[in-house]
Simulated scan of single mutants.
Amino acid sequence: MKTFVVGIDAGGTSVRLRWKESASGIEEQVRLPAAPDGGPEPALELLRQVPGEVLALTAGITKVSRGDTKAAWEQTLRTACPTAAVNVVPDFVVAFHGAVPEGVGLLCVAGTGSVIYGESGRGESVRVGGRGWEYGDEGSGASVTAELMRRTLRACDGLWPHTPLTRAVCATLETDDAALVGERGRQRALSFGRGFLVQLVAASAQNGDDEAKGLFTGAAGWLARYVRAAHAQLDFAGGEVVRVVCVGGMWELGDWMHPPFELLMARWLPGVITTAPRGTPCEGALRLAERSVL
């Protein structure tokens, strides 16, 4: 019977599964939409497509620390692959090992949420941030949206004058009544995600709005602070080349985020190299699965 190692990247939108045959080294990848509750059912369906015995499986999942999410994934995967070495880790861990194949450096994730994760050559690891939209995730689309909603509500309540950007928010929500702005903002967040105003901010920045540019500069500054904290906690060896890899939708907004971030990196962490990711989270999951059977 053919044998395989398997990597799974279970994001909020889709679940990707990548397998590699032990003998030939041939890889295949399949995907399905994610379950609404983030459960393992799509992964179970994808596993049925693997044409042989699974020797090792690593899955990177969202919300790994909330409730019984991790336990549900582990039970489902171990039931489906009873002889396999199964490992369920946070999604940012597989993203790191996809983006940084050598396993030394820092990953700065900034999408709807944000988190910094890194590993050193000594085998140490650290996570900074990623504490959820309620209390953290600075530098993310959710935090930019929340800050702009606060400014808009304060303007609607008469605490200070409206700006072109807060007026644009009111136009998007089709009201300048504070109570309705808040309620419609919550509805938009449920329907379109907690970063629902990021594209509005990006368009305003493109049109020269200084407030919009400032929101992105502030987001980049928070992310740089988190990277600096993670770097200090890992205490990289003097000879190690430390790479900071930036991934996520906030980094894909053009030049509004990268220049202020890289300026702070040069000031705070000279010698650190900022690079693009060199692989996908699903590739990282597969890489970790391979290592577990070496």
Rank of each mutant, 00 (worst) to 15 (best):
T3C: 07
A10F: 01
A10E: 01
G12M: 08
S14M: 12
V15I: 06
L17A: 04
R18L: 10
A23H: 07
I26Q: 14
E28V: 00
V30P: 06
V30S: 14
R48G: 09
V50H: 02
E53R: 14
A56V: 04
K63Q: 13
D68I: 02
Q75E: 11
Q75M: 08
Q75V: 11
A80Y: 10
V89P: 05
P90A: 06
H97L: 01
V100C: 07
L106N: 07
V109P: 10
G111E: 02
S114L: 07
V115T: 10
G118Y: 14
A142R: 12
L148Q: 06
L153V: 13
C156W: 03
L159R: 12
H162E: 14
P164T: 09
P164S: 09
R167A: 12
D176E: 14
V181W: 08
V181A: 03
G182S: 11
E183R: 15
E183L: 15
Q187M: 09
Q187G: 10
F196M: 05
F196V: 05
L197E: 02
V201A: 12
A202H: 10
Q206V: 12
G208H: 10
E211G: 04
A212E: 07
F216L: 04
A219R: 04
R225W: 08
Y226V: 11
A230R: 06
G239R: 03
V241N: 09
V241G: 05
M250V: 07
H258G: 12
V272E: 04
T280G: 04
S292C: 04
V293Q: 13
V293F: 11
